[in-house]
Design a protein around this nucleic acid. Sequence first.
DNA 1: GGCAACCGGAATGCCTCATTCCGCTTGGAG
DNA 2: CTCCAAGCGGAATGAGGCATTCCGGTTGCC
Lengths: 206, 206
Amino acid sequence: MPTDDAAPLRADARRNLEKIMSAARDVVVEHGLDAPMELVARRAGVGVGTLYRRFPTREALLGAVAEAYVADLVTATRRIIDGAVDSWSALRELVDWCASPGQGALAAALADLPVAQVQALPAFARSRHEWLELLDGLVTDGQRAGMIRADIGTGDLVALLTVFTCHPDQLPRHVADQPARYLHLMLDALAATAPRATPLPGTPPS
Amino acid sequence: MPTDDAAPLRADARRNLEKIMSAARDVVVEHGLDAPMELVARRAGVGVGTLYRRFPTREALLGAVAEAYVADLVTATRRIIDGAVDSWSALRELVDWCASPGQGALAAALADLPVAQVQALPAFARSRHEWLELLDGLVTDGQRAGMIRADIGTGDLVALLTVFTCHPDQLPRHVADQPARYLHLMLDALAATAPRATPLPGTPPS
DNA sequence: GGCAACCGGAATGCCTCATTCCGCTTGGAG
DNA sequence: CTCCAAGCGGAATGAGGCATTCCGGTTGCC
């Protein structure tokens, strides 16, 4: 998002800026990180020129979207955690939120995929860190309470959320069609149960 | 693979054909279905011209790779099933095989992603059907024996195999690094357990 | 009313491939 | 050993897709 210490925008320009941000978010959720700029412009009902007046490059736009997106994610996650009775149900609600249509867990994708330019944005990094911390609390709590198996880590959760909610083109039809189904399957996998016959291979990522 | 009823290939040509098929398989596993032809050529230590003398179009090459790949998959799956003591351990071994490096479950991806030209190849379709039938037997058996939960279907298994073994570029680093870890995690989710608090949302894909 | 800030979108330039072409090599039949 | 069709490598061609630029025409707002 452009810094607002410059001259204030004209009313119509501000309106357009909002349309652009919103369109960009939708387009990125639907078409992935490399969606063409023109798609964003068309979706916003605006010419590409307008878009470029506000964001000098594609990276700038993606950065703005990313920052807004992770910020949202943090807010939603915090709200869910505050309202839930225990960490397990918080987890379930979080999963549902991520799977809800138009929501996507794109932020999770952004948080993991290598978009150097975006990762470097301070605001993005800060929010991302905050989010990871929230998740970490959730997982740790759940494990202490014996609701989540001990051999997985927050990184596993992030990885799985990312996988099942990235944009549809990259997923098998079934998964793209009902992300919630697979996310809940994943939750079942994370739940603590009787000792398992064979340990999980590999190590939980940091 | 070109029909062999034509004039027999010169010795060096046959050698090159093999190098090409092998390279193509590797490249597709590593870079996905839209890897550039030149990558294949370079990997095979051959000029693009050579590659095009054998396969008239990109589709032809992909088709050949796909056919060979699914055929392999069927063979391996059958071998695993025949050698396993029960369907659950067969499933586990199958997962390990798919996750083994350089193996990829690309065939599974091919089986699901919409590559019309490839899906239409009779040999491919036949093998794919055969494979699905094998998996179906596995799942049904496992369910009858009470080892696999009843509310999932073969399609779920295929979807999961596909997701976790598609080429690395599309997966979060952690998942790409240890596909076996996540496949086994999901396997745990497929296992039959005490009745679950909440039913799985959605329906098992056919 | 006047003009700086805005707009839309055609035009430009770059890049990434698939596919083709052609002059040079080389198995292997006779 | 000769010869030439079958092979070969890889530069060149052409199409398509996309970010970004430019500019003649609008429009908030003082």
